[in-house]
């Protein structure tokens, strides 16, 4: 496996990119302005694209360059553009009803990272891979997953929920690049396109939501209970 036997330089580079992505997840968690949220997501996608290219270079997986270009194009530019358009059309700028203050959600996010670290450390030990970049990749992957779920549950603006889902998938993407760079290209490309469809879906739904329910805050969705 590539990640287990890395030279110090690529190992440091991969770690830097992974930690950068995790930090950006915290930026998203701590901001209440949707625009900042979205820019952090775009930046994170760019970091992941760079990571793909770096892994392609050091592991000589030529197809990862394609994935890198697609990631940058779709997740780094097209998706943020679409979401920005939704934000503009809806004229929502920030979360109005906060369930949790950004500061408290940051603290919970920190706990999530600690939990992810414990789990990954265990798995790393079981596979006798401790001390490699694998443990870090697993930690970042799991903690971005947990942070994504945290965002889904404490944010109620429709746009933030879309972004929460995208963060979930960014985490998986990042981990998958480091752990299984050889995973068939076909699947990775399809997943990228899939995301685009998801966002198109969401765009339509948000429009409906606004026209029928009159608000894009999902806090008002409480007709169906029991």
């Amino acid at each position: 496996m590539l990640a287990a036997h890395l030279d110090p330089l690529p190992a440091a580079l991969f770690s830097l990119l992974a930690i950068g992505s995790l930090l950006l997840a915290f930026v998203m968690l701590g901001s209440r302005w949707l625009r900042h949220y979205m820019f952090a997501f775009a930046a994170q996608s760019w970091l992941i694209a760079i990571l793909s290219a770096a892994i392609g270079f050091y592991g000589s997986y030529a197809e990862l360059y394609i994935v890198a270009i697609l990631t940058a194009a779709f997740r780094g530019m097209l998706l943020p553009y679409l979401i920005l358009r939704i934000i503009r059309r809806l004229e929502v700028n920030r979360e109005i009803h906060l369930i949790l203050q950004p500061s408290s959600s940051l603290v919970i996010g920190a706990f999530a990272v600690v939990f992810a670290l414990v789990v990954s450390y265990r798995i790393g030990t079981a596979l006798s891979l401790d001390g490699t970049v694998v443990v870090l990749a697993l930690t970042v992957m799991l903690s971005m997953k947990l942070i994504g779920f945290l965002m889904l549950s404490v944010r109620h603006e429709a746009v933030s929920q879309i972004l929460g889902l995208l963060v979930l998938e960014n985490g998986i993407f990042l981990g998958a690049q480091i752990l299984v760079p050889g995973m068939p290209l076909l699947i990775e490309i399809v997943i990228l396109f899939d995301l685009l469809i998801v966002v198109a879906c969401f765009g339509v739904l948000v429009q409906y939501l606004l026209s029928q329910v009159g608000t894009t805050s999902t806090l008002h969705l409480k007709r169906l209970v029991g």
Binding site: L205, Q212, V213, L221
Partner: peptide, 10 residues
């Protein structure tokens, strides 16, 4: 139904 669809997809 919009509410149901939203919850469904999320």
């Amino acid at each position: 139904s919009i509410e149901a669809a939203w919850k469904y997809i999320i």
